[in-house]
Design a protein around this nucleic acid. Sequence first.
RNA 1: GGGCACGUAGAUCAGCGGAAGAUCGCUGCUUUCGCAAAGCAGAGGUCGGGGGUUCAAAUCCCCCCGUGUCCA
Length: 854
Amino acid sequence: MEAAEYDLAYFRSNGFHRRACVVCGSPFWTLGDHDRCQEAPCRDYGFLGHPVFRRPYALREMREAFLGFFEHRGHTRLRRYPTVARWRNDVFFTQASIYDFQPWVTSGAIPPPANPLTISQPVLRFIDLEEVGRSGRHLTLFEMLAHHAFNRPDHEVYFKERTVELCHELFTAELGAPATGLTYKEEVWEGGGNLGPSLSVGLAGLEVATLVFMEYVRDGERLKPMPLTVVDTGYGLERLVWASQGTRTAYEAVFAGEYDELRRSFPPRETAILIDHARALNFLLTDGVVPSNGKEGYFARLLLRRMLRLLSKVPEAPSLVAILDRSGRELARDYPEIGEHRDDLARVVEAEIERYREALERARQTIRRQDAKYRAEGSRATEEDLLRWYDSLGVPPDVAVEELSQPPAIPEDFYARVAARHESERPTTDYVDASEGFPEVPASVPGTEVLYYLDPYTVAFEAHVVHVDGPFVVLERTYFYPTGGGQVADRGHLGDLEVIDVGRKGPHVLHRLERAAPWHPGDRVRGRIDPRRRTQLMQHHTATHLLNGALREVLGPHVWQAGAHKAPELARIDVTHFRSPSADELRRVDRLINAVVRENRPVKSYFESRTEAERRFGFTLYQGGAVPGKELRIVEIEGFDVEACGGTHCTHTSEVGAIQLVDVERIQDGIVRLSFASGERALELREEHEATLKEAARRLGVPPEKLPEGIDRLLGEVEESRKVAKARTRGDLEGMATSLLADPTRTAAVGPTTIIAATVDLDRAGLTELSRILSRADGRVVLLASEREGKGTLFAGSTASGVSALALIEQSRAVFQAKGGGNPSAATAVGEPGEPLQRALGAAREAARQAAGG
RNA sequence: GGGCACGUAGAUCAGCGGAAGAUCGCUGCUUUCGCAAAGCAGAGGUCGGGGGUUCAAAUCCCCCCGUGUCCA
C-alpha cells in the first residue's frame, strides 16, 4: 500500500503527525507524543487500574453508547445476524460483522439493508479457544461493534476521512479518552481476493478498533479498484468495557455478577472458560446448531465437553444446564430470542451430556481391556496410546490415565501432538456455485425484472431480449424461475427453442437454450414455462415449508433447515436434530402437515422491510440462510410457518395436495434428512407403493394386509429348510464316516493310532466337516483326497499325538505339485488331480504310518 | 470436508491368515414344595455389504454402508 493511502486530510487538518513505531516499525498517526504505537506488545497495558474512558461502562451501556453514537450520526441500527453463517459455504460461523454482508452486498449484487449502518454482531473465533481464560482477554464469542458504509460510484456514503473522524470522535468526545492517547497504525488488509488500507487503533496498550477500507481487487500483481468500496470497521465491545473498568482481566469487567458466582467454585481460568463457553453455546444453540461430530455442530460439542470436563472435577459445582441457563438469562436481556426456548435448549444439552457419558463409558471399557492385555504380556500403555485414545475414542488423557494400572506420563505438549497427527490432512471443498456454467453479463445490461415472485401462476409471457451470449439469453423481465434456494429451475420454451436451464448471475436471470439464440437485443420473444413441472415444484416448495414448520412443532424449536432440494420427482429437507425421529414423531408430523393442507390456509408471499419482518417473526425467518437486502420476501403459511424465501409457492395449502413421506435418514450426526413428494407426484408414489405391495402379496399368495405374516411364514420355511439341508448334509457325512471306519481297506491301526485314508467327492467345507467327524476320538489321522474343478485337494487332520497334519501335507505336497499349509491338527494342499493326487494320498498315508511309529 | 478407530451369537466382547470362541442371557434336564442358586446338556453366526489377493480370509487390500471420535 502506498503511503498516500493513509495521508488523510483529517489527520493533516487536525494536527496529527506520522511516526514510526520504534518497536514494530509500523508507521502510525497520532496527536500525542508517542515513539511507539499504543498496542500490545509494543507497549504494556496502561489501563489496568487506570480506566481510560470517562467512566466505567457495563457491557450493555457500552453497546448502547456505541450504537447510539452512530445512530445519531445517520447510521441505521441493525439487529444481530445469526452466529452460524448459513448463507455462506466457505465458513461455518460469523467471524466478523462484515460476514453479514458477504458475498452479495459487498459484491454489489444486492443493496445493503441500510447504508450506512451500525451493528453489534456476536462473532465466534475458535482459533482463540486455548487462549480463553489464559490471556485475560480472549473469548470464543465476542461482540463486534461496527459501522459500515457501502459506496457505489453513483452513491458515495463515506470513506476514509469520515470513518476516521467518526472513530476519533467516538473515543474522545463520546467515551472521553484523551485525544493524545490514540494511535492509528497503518496496515494492509486482505481477504477473499480484495484488499485495501486499514488503520489499527491503539489506546493504552489495547487494539480497540480496526478500520478497514476495502478498495481493490487483486488481479495478479496489479490492483484494480473495486466497483463498490466498503468501510469495514470492527470494535471489540468486551475490550472497550474492559478498558473502561480497568479490571485485572476482561472477564471480570464483562461478566461481573456471573463471574463472581462461579468464582466461588472455580479458579479464575476455569471460571472464565465456563462463562465464555456458556455464552457461546447459548448463541450457537439458539441459532440452531445441534452438537454433532462434524461441521459447525462439532464446535458446539467441543465447548460442551470442555465444560463437562471442568465441571466433573468439582463435585459441588452447579450443573451445566444451570450455568447455561444463568448465562442465557443474562443474554436474554439484550437478545430476547435466547430466552425463548430454554426448555428445548436444555433437552438438546441433556441429550448431548448423555451421549458424552456413554462415549466415555465405552472408551473406559476399551482402555481397561487394553490395560489388562498389556498387563498379561508384561508391557504397558504408551504416550502414543494416550494420543490414539483421545483421537479415536475422545478420552482426554487425564481420564485415560485413571483406567491404567501403569499409566505413562501425559506429555506436556499433548494437544500440540494431537494437532501434529492431523497436519497432513488436506480439506477439500467440492462446492459448486449454482450460477456455475453461466457466463458473466456486462454490467451495462439492465437487471432482469423477476415476475415469478409476484405471480407464480403465469406460465406464458412476452418480453424483450436485452442480451444474448450464444445459447444464453437475458430478458428485460421473466417468469422463469432460476435455480436457487434449493429449488431447481423451470423448463419451457423461448420462441421455438427449448429452455434447458435457468440461472441467476447477480441482477440477471440467464435462460440457457438448447442451442445458440437467433435473437438480438430489442427482439421480442414469447416465453412458455412447462406448467406441470412448475406446479410440481411449487407444491414441493410449499410442502417443504409445511414440513419444516411441523418438524419444529413436533421435535422442538432447535430444528432448523440445514439444506433442501426441490426437484420435480422428489423433494428433501435436511434439518438439525439430535437423533432419528421416532415412528410416533413422524406420524405426528405427517398428521400435522396433512391437516394444515386440509385446512386450506392461505400462503402469503410478500415483500417487507427487514427490520419489520425480523421484529414480527424473529430469526427463524432465515431457515434457508440470511438473505441480504432491505426488503425480505416473506412466505407465510398463516399461523404455521414464516420464512424468508425467494421460491415459487402455492397461494393456499390445499394446492399442495397429498404429502407423502418417502424416507427418513440420519445423513450425519445432528442432521436428519426427510425425502418426500407432494401433489401429483405423491399420488404417483402412492400408486407405485401400492402396486409394489400388491405384487409382493400376489407372489406370496396372501392378501396385502397379511403380508407381514406371509413374510414371517416364508422366512420360517427358509430357515427350516436350511436346517433340514444342514442336517441332511451332516447325516450324509456321518454315514460316510461310519462306512469309512468300517472299511478295512481305508482304515489301518498303527499302535494306538488309527489312520483313515480315502478319496471322496466333497468341497473344502465338506472335507473339513468329515474330518472333524472322523477325528472325534483321540489318536485319529484323517487323510482325504477330493477332486473338484480340475484340481486335487488333499486334506489332513490329526488328533494323534506325535502326528502333525501339517507335516504330512508338507511331506506329500511336492508329489502333486501342490501349494498349501495349515496347522498340526488340520492342513490342506491343492495341486494336480488324478494320478498325482492319488500318489500324494499314498505318500501321506505312508508318512502318517511312520510318524505313528509303524 | 478430512484423519483415525470400530461393526463377530439376543447383549458385552475375544480371536487379527490355517477346523468360528468366552461371559452373561435363552432352552431343557438334575436338584427344590416353589423360587433363587449350582451342576450337566443344548439351541443360537451368510464374522456389516460387495469386490480382490491367497492353496486357505472374520483376519490382508480396495470400494460402499453404518457407528464413534478427533481436527478444520
